[in-house]
Amino acid sequence: MSPTNYLLLSALLFSIGAVGVLVRRNAVVVFMCIELMLNAVNLTLVTFSRINGTLDGQVMAFFVMVVAAAEVVVGLAIITSIFRTRQSSSVDDANLLKY
């Protein structure tokens, strides 16, 4: 089996995540889809690390995880504070910043 399969899987997961971001309205679910996209990228990094025989890809994936964790913490805090003021977690309801 060629390692390309991992990359193909990753591409599909990334696209699924992107579509999820576009079609879901619950902010928490949108966030989950973003996490899915990040994970897809991580899989790519790990696979390339293996193909190249170096560990740098894994280090990069590690950093992605850390940054993603930080992002999740802040993002979820923003979602809760929005929910507290607007009684809604739908991204469509927060649309005041417009024309």
């Binding site: 060629s2 390692p3 390309t4 990359l7 193909l8 599909l12 696209s15 293996r50 193909i51 025989g53």
Partner: peptide, 21 residues
């Protein structure tokens, strides 16, 4: 697009016997 690109460019890759791996 991504799949096409991968399928065209990475036809015969194999894992390198990396020292650190």
């Amino acid at each position: 697009l991504l799949v096409a690109a991968l399928a065209r460019s990475l036809t015969s890759v194999q894992p390198a016997p990396g020292a650190g791996l």
